[in-house]
């Protein structure tokens, strides 16, 4: 394997382990992926599958004492895991920014919006307070917030959820990062605001040539804005590919299940949504073989016994399943949706 460092971010064999009082938890295991400039990559999976942990590992926001991060995280050709504390701090906020899930608690309640953006600017650049405030207002207006000068003087509790998320985006963009990690940025917002925020992200991706990792459990969002999708399950990647390939021919039963669980606007309204039975296995007690096997319709003897490897297909799609060829043979997912649910 030739090392290619031309990607903006390349994560190789990332293992994140927490040492908790209950024991060792392997929250993320053998995760590898890359993000290019000007590209939005979706990271999908249900709660607790390691999406957020993966991104927090990139930023190294976990308590170092109880967390072990192994592997390599190349960002612009330097391994973030080899950096010193101070060097990593210079990366955070300047080169890589993060937007958090809950806009309600992601702002410090005791400072005004303007002050908080100014702080984000002044953390990495030595400029005058007045100039920083001017830039803060400019950033706010970039996020299409109405009357940015007024908003800058307000406290977080005076703003709505959508406005706060715009403020958080402004803070994240304060130093024009090359990579933006958006951890479920639209989950706490209603649908109309959701699409506005997504439009903003798409727009900034283009104008600033940023790479964006979009963590979400909403496949609709992914289909709309991402170019590639990574599907995670129980701490590992189960499928990866372009949006088109994942949505038209998902090769992992889990991805398939997620798609079938999604309501379709076109097509037969009477066909029922299909649920994935069961819950994500506890990370303390993972199945020996394939982690999805207990919930999988396709599982056979081998699934319970041997852990499948991530297999790359000619098309570039990657899948971690013993039976992907069986799924490959099946027709396009859209055609088979109603058949599948009729069967189930």
């Amino acid at each position: 394997m030739v090392l290619e460092h031309e990607h903006l971010l390349e994560v190789r064999a990332l293992h994140t382990t927490f040492y908790t009082e209950k024991g060792r938890v392997k929250a993320v295991e053998d995760v590898s992926f890359y993000v290019d400039r000007g590209e939005m990559v979706g990271l999908v999976g249900e709660s607790g599958c390691g999406k957020s942990v993966t991104c927090e590992s990139i930023m190294q926001l976990h308590n170092r004492r109880i967390t072990e991060i192994k592997g390599e995280i190349f960002f612009e050709s330097q391994d973030l895991l080899k950096l010193k504390k101070q060097q990593m701090r210079n990366i955070r906020g300047r080169s890589i920014s993060m937007i958090f899930q809950d806009p309600m608690s992601s702002l410090n309640p005791v400072y005004t919006i303007g002050d908080q953006i100014v702080e984000a600017i002044k953390t990495h650049r030595k400029i005058e307070k007045n100039e920083a405030m001017r830039q803060a207002v400019e950033l706010l207006s970039m996020t299409e917030i109405s009357s940015p000068e007024e908003v800058a003087k307000k406290y977080p509790h005076q703003l709505s959820g959508g406005m706060r998320q715009r403020v958080l985006i402004a803070i994240a963009l304060a130093c024009q990062p090359r990579l933006l990690i958006a951890d479920e940025p639209t989950t706490a917002l209603d649908v109309t605001i959701q699409s506005q925020i997504l439009d903003l992200l798409v727009q900034f991706k283009k104008t600033l040539d940023m790479g964006i990792i979009l963590i979400t459990h909403d496949l609709g969002v992914v289909a709309e804005v991402c170019s590639r999708v990574i599907v995670m399950y129980a701490g590992e990647i189960v499928e990866e590919g372009t949006v088109e390939s994942i949505f038209t021919k998902p090769l992992h039963p889990y991805t398939r299940g997620l798609l079938l669980a999604m309501p379709q606007i076109q097509g037969d309204r009477n066909c029922k949504l299909k649920v994935i039975k069961g819950v994500v296995p506890s990370l303390f007690n993972l199945p020996r073989g394939c982690r999805f096997a207990p919930r999988c319709d396709y599982s056979t003897q081998i699934c319970a016994e041997k852990h499948p490897e991530l297999t790359a297909l000619d098309s570039g799609q990657m899948v971690r399943c013993w039976h992907y060829q069986k799924l490959l043979k099946e027709a396009r997912i859209n055609d088979s949706i109603c058949d599948a649910s009729a069967r189930g």
């Binding site: 930023m59 926001l61 701090r89 210079n90 990366i91 955070r92 906020g93 300047r94 920014s97 993060m98 958090f100 899930q101 809950d102 608690s105 992601s106 702002l107 410090n108 309640p109 702080e119 984000a120 953390t123 990495h124 958080l168 803070i171 304060a174």
Partner: peptide, 12 residues
């Protein structure tokens, strides 16, 4: 609260 993590993510 998330804002502390957010501030750390800003490089504070």
């Amino acid at each position: 609260q998330t804002f502390i993590e957010a501030i750390k993510a800003q490089g504070a």
